[in-house]
Amino acid sequence: MNVLETRHVTMRFGGLTAVDDLNIVIEEGEIVSLIGPNGAGKTTCFNVITGIYQPTEGEVFFYGEKLNGKRPDQVASIGISRTFQNIRLFKTMTVLENVLCATHFNRHSGLFSNILHLPNALKEEGLNRDKALKILDEVGLAQYADWKATSLPYGLQRRLEIARALVSEPKLLLLDEPAAGMNPKESDELADFIFEIKDKFHITVFLIEHHMKLVMKISDRIYVTQYGKTIAMGTPEEIRNNPLVIQAYLGEEG
């Protein structure tokens, strides 16, 4: 079953075509990367999938369900979670509260029982808290639960953002440059971390990344885009030897 499928997705902003005829197929349990030079329309592609932008043309399917016309919160609630290139945490909240926010859409108790702290709301809050603490424990942030989110070191903030994305039990996780600003050691740890969460949570991972070493290490398949167009697709080995990709990254031979 295809987890995600984009059919002829095109995104234009006025005269600029940021994504041009994008066709991506991701199967269950895969780790797929999207790479390309700066400005190739990678983040735009994520924004189209998650509903921040509606594609000018084309369709996006998630487990056969059409995503066109859905708002970001609706996309999130059917099982697509994402992280952001520039970390977006809720800065006035603690680490635990950040994760708890992602359990909001899944609530069964109403506004009034929550205001009055009725037993059903309290019970649900307790369950969510346990779930959030468990996720924090699994990503190694349990001891920071009561810290202000923004007081965490950079690498851990990235982890927290992933924890927040995982607590709603998504089927597909979109990671937008998870290794940005990390040193080689940290990005090695990140690679292990991505493998780990993929197995633990049975999710499919789609990521944008610039760190070639990381991409080559973890990806099952890689899509390469340039100026919005997909120029290559294949396993890391195929991509490494693809002349078009080499040209896009290193320029033409002088």
Binding site: I52, R71, A76, K91, M93, F105, N106, H117, R164, S168
Partner: peptide, 25 residues
């Protein structure tokens, strides 16, 4: 203090992130 209060604060702190984790703005 409830989950609704957290949702309000999430919308204030970062509307884009709030929407991406399923909070309808």
């Amino acid at each position: 203090r409830s989950t609704y209060g957290r949702a309000l604060k999430a919308v204030r702190d970062d509307p884009v992130a709030a929407e991406a984790i399923g909070i309808p703005l």
